[in-house]
Amino acid sequence: MIKRKLVLVAGILLATSFNLSAQNYKAKFINAFTRYMDWPDRAKQGFFNIGVYGSFDLYKEISEETMGRTVGSQNVVAINILKENQLDLTKLHILVIGKKYCTPEHLKRITSKFSNSYTLIVTEDSGVLNGAGISFENRGTTLGFKYNLANINNKGIAASGQFKSMGQEVN
């Protein structure tokens, strides 16, 4: 009985540490995206806003990863978005959509809100690129991402060669 409990506790700790580790890597990727992409001049004023909708753990990691950082002359601000109607409250440079909201219905509604903006949409769910520019993907023991260059370029955002070499392009 004690052995089963120990195995269960070890399994939970391992799963929790993998989840936190994955969130930490995603935050590092988001930070890298700010360096390897160029937003239009019209978007280079005020704060550089990164919104996270539907994943408080990822918001915390991004907030810690980007604290005190800048993109060009813009200070980076991480914003935790709790409800879909809050997406309209501020201009976002990057919007990260948590796995829970990566359904085709949610993505269609959310991406339509940003159809005329310079917002790079990143999803946490692998393979979901319905209007998003980037989608994280678990690859066994590693984390990677896929990207849709047309969706990124349609936002007026230019991706560097270094960015393109980091992920896998899909159409």
Rank of each mutant, 00 (worst) to 15 (best):
M1F: 12
K3S: 09
L6G: 12
A10H: 03
G11A: 12
G11T: 01
G11R: 10
I12N: 03
L14S: 04
S17K: 04
F18G: 07
F18R: 13
F18A: 15
F18L: 15
F18E: 11
N19L: 15
S21F: 15
S21Q: 06
A22T: 11
Q23T: 03
Q23H: 10
Y25M: 13
Y25C: 01
K26F: 07
I30V: 11
N31G: 13
A32Y: 14
D41H: 05
R42T: 00
K44D: 00
Q45H: 13
G46R: 13
G51P: 09
G51Q: 07
Y53N: 01
G54V: 06
G54K: 04
F56D: 09
D57Y: 11
L58C: 01
Y59L: 04
Y59Q: 03
Y59E: 02
S63H: 09
E64N: 12
T66I: 03
T66C: 13
R69A: 08
R69L: 11
Q74M: 13
N75H: 11
V76F: 09
V76N: 00
V77D: 04
V77C: 01
A78T: 01
L82P: 03
E84K: 15
N85K: 14
L87K: 02
L89G: 00
L92Q: 00
H93I: 04
I94Q: 01
V96W: 09
I97T: 06
K100M: 09
P104Q: 02
P104G: 02
P104L: 04
K108A: 09
I110M: 04
T111F: 07
T111N: 13
K113R: 15
F114C: 03
S115I: 14
Y118A: 02
T123A: 03
L129M: 03
N130H: 09
G131A: 08
G131E: 03
A132W: 03
S135A: 04
F136R: 08
N138Q: 05
R139V: 12
T142M: 05
T142W: 08
L143E: 05
G144Y: 07
K146H: 05
K146P: 00
N148M: 09
L149R: 10
A150F: 02
I152E: 01
I152R: 02
N153S: 14
N154I: 01
K155V: 04
K155G: 07
G156P: 04
G156M: 06
A158T: 12
A159H: 01
K164Q: 15
S165C: 05
M166F: 14
Q168L: 14
Q168V: 15
E169M: 10
E169Q: 15
E169K: 15
